[in-house]
Design a protein around this nucleic acid. Structure first.
Length: 615
DNA sequence: TTTAACTCCC
């Protein structure tokens, strides 16, 4: 991630650009533009063979470019050959045709090639227009070079081009994709304030999508209403974006409401709209509604696509209903859709969840016969399956097999293996693997890896090693979250260092962190373990006061703590409270209680408790 | 007939 500083000069620049585009280009931007030209690529090297397209007629080439701008070329070389031929043509082709070539490259996601052709065109002084520049800006954004995109914007304004709403919308999307939503919103507001553009439905949709992805569905809905009020009509994509977002936050009924709203307004949902909803309903196990929705699709003549089937396959697999998933696969093939690597990943995952890793392996091997290349995820699923089965050596075999298949292990692969080693108690190898294969190879760690490592170390009594490792991580810039602290607090207390645990816990606010239910539960458990019921109780009451309600685990754990410490009265109070909140006693609590009843003890509070509980 | 947006699998 580049610093904000490289981009923020752009925003005041845009403001002044509204007043005087020609004179107020920031120095930094100007330098960027110069840099840009200096490093322009040389014209394409001549290809050693005769291009296929060298005999293509003028008219045919123009037609070809039109077609390819919609779908992209089959091969990158074809695009480059066409470009070479275009350069030789006299009279020179209209810029429209060059734009279509760039569009084709964008369709092929060949952004860096598009940029280098764009630079080539500039060097050759081919007269470009705002469409060309906007396409180039889009390519820079996709290459995560929003800074270059903005410097290009500055350059074109300086040269008298007028950026369109598409140009600015592209930049807004670029900022959002770099996790700079605030800057994107600022740009958006300023564009309106200085009347540089009238945002259109795409501009709004992109920002709505950005806000959704930031996890703020209610704000997204607000912006949606604002856009309607301003007379900008949402279209199918806008509705689909919002519906998808609501589904991801389990607000499926609200999403269904939007589906009905859009159809009332005559905006047709498409297969993507339905896929989002089907996914949302599957996630919360509303199978009946899923069936309804699939019927509705049939009625509206919207046919299912591979995504629809994959969602269904995945949902069945997650429920352990693999036979039904296989039926869906059968059906999709009958209807002319081929299962892909995603379909089979779900199936493999389903088998692994059931513990049938051999069947998962059979699926994996069948993919090769069908000409479907397994990706890293497929390996991760299998590796995870073997690790869960405690067959870590099989997992390592697969891990070592990946490079020969042209695959690079992902951070998930490493994390899974690390966890696998810890899971079977092979902590020496775990630490070795971590050091040799991850740190020494420069694998970039994420928070999940850290959690696995710290948890693994703590569980194997290397709590101080975990602590010192944690300090290294912190000093190398990883921002620890509350989950990492919870692991450390748990590890410290379970290894007999209650005081260290307590001081970490007490220091959380200073780190800007708030304990969550798990943190409190871990700490309460620590106090119970040391017989410090008063402290535990104090913390338990503090949770409620801090708006962090105890859950079933907290209650059960605290009740067991009370029972172990022979405080039957307190256990009874807690039990009433727990039942009152709709939680049940878990198996472990029940067995502690039954054991107590078995061996002892004529404590009236215990008897009362058992009577009340009487399973 | 040139530029920008949305969905699935650890």
């Amino acid at each position: 991630m580049r610093s904000l500083a490289s981009l923020t000069p752009v925003l005041p620049f845009l403001r002044s650009a509204a007043e005087s585009a020609a004179t107020t280009c920031g120095l930094a931007l100007f330098q960027f533009d110069a840099h840009f030209l200096m490093f322009s690529t040389k014209p394409n090297p001549k290809h050693p063979y005769v291009p296929h397209f060298s005999n293509t007629s003028h008219a045919r080439l123009q037609q070809l470019l039109y077609e390819k701008s919609k779908v992209g070329f089959d091969k990158l070389d074809d695009a480059l050959q066409v470009f070479d031929k275009m350069l030789l043509m006299k009279p020179m082709l209209p810029v429209l045709k060059f734009n279509q070539l760039l569009a084709a490259l964008v369709k092929m996601k060949e952004y860096s090639v598009a940029v280098s052709l764009f630079r080539d065109m500039r060097v050759r002084s081919i007269p470009l227009n705002i469409y060309t520049f906007t396409t180039a800006i889009n390519c820079f954004c996709h290459l995560n070079r929003v800074d270059f995109a903005f410097s290009l914007l500055a350059g074109i304004i300086k040269h008298g081009f007028v950026p369109s709403v598409v140009t600015y919308t592209t930049l807004i999307r670029g900022l959002i994709s770099q996790d700079m939503l605030q800057e994107a919103q600022l740009l958006f507001q300023n564009l309106i304030r200085f009347q540089l553009i009238q945002p259109d439905v795409v501009t709004y949709t992109i920002i709505i999508d950005g806000i959704c992805k930031r996890g703020n569905p209610s704000v997204a809905v607000k912006l949606f209403k604002i856009m309607e009020k301003k007379g900008c009509k949402p279209d199918t994509v806008t509705y689909t974006t919002l519906i998808d977002c609501l589904c991801k936050y389990r607000l499926v009924d609200q999403a269904l409401g939007l589906l009905h709203q859009m159809t009332r307004k005559g905006i047709s949902p498409n297969v993507i709209t339905y896929n989002s909803l089907v996914q949302g309903l599957c996630d919360i196990n509303r199978w009946h509604d899923v069936k309804q929705l699939l019927k509705e699709m049939d009625v509206r003549n919207i046919s299912r696509d591979v995504f629809t089937y994959n969602i269904l396959v995945d949902a069945y697999c997650k429920e352990g209903m693999i036979e039904d998933a296989e039926d869906v696969i059968e059906l999709m093939i009958q209807r002319g859709h081929y299962p892909d690597v995603v379909t089979y990943s779900s199936l493999m995952d389903g088998y692994c969840l059931r513990g049938e890793v051999d069947k998962a392996l059979a699926v994996f091997e069948s993919m090769a016969r069908k000409g479907i290349l397994p990706n890293a995820l497929c390996y991760n699923i299998l590796i995870n399956g073997y690790c869960r089965k405690k067959k870590v050596d099989r997992a390592i075999d697969l891990f070592q097999q990946m490079p020969s298949e042209g695959l690079t292990p992902t951070i998930q692969t490493y994390s899974t293996i690390l966890q696998g080693f810890f899971h079977v108690g092979r902590h020496v190898e775990a630490r070795e693997f971590f050091k040799e294969k991850m740190i020494n190879q420069g694998v970039e760690l994420n928070k999940v890896t850290c959690r696995i490592l710290l948890h693994g170390l703590c569980q194997n009594c290397y709590v101080f090693e975990a602590l010192s490792f944690f300090q290294i991580l912190e000093s190398s810039g990883l921002v620890a979250d509350i989950q990492v602290y919870t692991i450390l607090i748990d590890g410290l207390s379970k290894n007999g260092h209650l005081e260290n645990a307590r001081s970490l816990f007490d220091n959380l606010p200073a780190k800007g962190l708030r304990p969550n239910v798990k943190t409190y539960t871990v700490m309460i458990q620590a106090y119970c373990h040391e017989g410090l019921l008063d402290e535990a109780n104090e913390l338990f009451r503090e949770m409620e006061a801090r708006d962090c309600l105890p859950n079933d685990v907290t209650y059960n754990m605290f009740i067991r703590g009370c029972l172990h410490n022979k405080n039957y009265y307190e256990a009874g109070v807690l039990m009433d409270e727990m039942f009152g909140r709709g939680f049940a006693a878990d198996a472990s609590t029940a067995s502690v209680l039954l054991d107590l009843l078995d061996v002892q003890e004529q404590d009236p509070a215990l008897l009362a408790l058992c009577k009340k509980y009487s399973p």
